[in-house]
């Protein structure tokens, strides 16, 4: 019962967070330079036409009024239509004059749903690679904090955290794709095109996971119930995997929740570099084109994902350690 209460409370908190995030994005878009109407009708359109269309679209109303109108649409499940992308998938670009065009624009929800699976696939694979690298290193480093493996783990973490993702992306594409011909990486035709971008993202994520695992392992290894395990006749592996790992899982779980959410943001640069057709690439083009409804939709969906993931993590940690509920 208590858990259900926590769940409802966290959901309500999450809704507030999503609303605040959406309002912030909504307001910032309307404050920064770059009139979307000018980009819709084109640079050659006269000012009076720009104003006329802006009025019609309600873009000159006060921001709270516009936000209220947007929310009333959203609660009906309508994220609106793109300002720049017609339904046929094409993207527009400013500099021309398209006021007379009568083309049906794509629905934001369709655009997001089309790209989201690619991004989830990329983020999921990146997380998997991170865990494969981080677990052995982190556990070994945590068990012997002053040992050689710990130094290696520290060195790898320091190197990984210092490498800019755009640089690593270009270098890996040049070396692995072009020089060695081992993996494709530019564009997307099948799952193989996800691997190199995922490695770049994993390199970003690994240092945090390695650090968290090694620190929690080092701390828990000092606990009395772990130290006494051997006396109780447990094997070393039994102590590590059945007791230390389980107790170290809570901080790790919290970190994974945050890292997965961070990955959803981190994909922006990586998808752009690799021409990967996910939500990150869509976000960049939407921002460049001042495609307000699309940016707002992406922001709302990603913040909802972020909140959802963290609620799930919280609930799972409550289940593992009921003391945390209080």
């Amino acid at each position: 019962m208590h858990l259900a209460g926590q769940f409802v409370r966290r959901i309500l908190q999450g809704v507030v967070v999503v609303l605040i995030t959406t309002f912030l994005i909504f307001s910032i878009l309307r404050i920064v330079p770059g009139d979307p109407v000018r980009l819709i009708v084109g640079g050659m359109a006269p000012d009076n036409l720009v104003e006329e269309i802006a009025q019609k679209m309600g873009l000159r109303d006060p921001i709270p009024v516009q936000f209220g109108r947007y929310l009333s649409q959203v609660v009906q499940g309508d994220l609106g239509n793109s300002y720049q992308r017609p339904k046929n998938g094409m993207m527009g670009q400013g500099g021309d004059f398209n006021a007379n065009m009568d083309v049906e624009m794509a629905e934001v929800s369709d655009l997001i749903l089309e790209r989201l699976p690619y991004t989830l696939q990329l983020a999921g694979l990146a997380l998997l690679i991170s865990l494969i690298i981080s677990f052995p290193l982190g556990i070994s480093a945590g068990l012997k904090p002053k040992g050689f493996i710990s130094k290696i783990a520290f060195f790898i973490s320091s190197v990984f955290v210092s490498i800019p993702n755009f640089w690593l992306g270009i270098v890996l594409a040049l070396f692995i794709t072009i020089k060695l011909g081992l993996l494709p990486s530019i564009g997307y035709q099948n799952f193989a095109y996800t691997i190199l971008p995922a490695i770049v993202l994993a390199v970003e994520t690994c240092p945090f996971i390695i650090r968290t695992i090694s620190v929690s392992f080092a701390e828990i290894s000092q606990e009395y119930f772990i130290k006494s395990g051997k006396v109780r006749g447990l094997t070393r592996n039994g102590v590590i995997y059945r007791h230390t790992l389980r107790n170290a899982s809570i901080p790790l779980l919290n970190l994974l929740g945050i890292q997965l959410s961070t990955l959803l943001g981190g994909v922006i640069v990586v998808e752009y570099i690799f021409d990967y057709p996910g939500l990150g690439q869509l976000t960049i083009y939407a921002v460049l084109q001042r495609d307000f409804p699309l940016i707002q939709g992406i922001a709302m969906v990603t913040s909802a994902l972020y909140v959802g993931l963290n609620i799930a993590v919280d609930l799972i940690t409550y289940s593992i350690d009921p003391r945390l509920e209080s």
Partner: peptide, 17 residues
Amino acid sequence: AEALTGNWDPTTHTNLG
């Protein structure tokens, strides 16, 4: 290097792409 305009009428743009 350049995106298309989304309007196929050649008289509506000066877009090189």
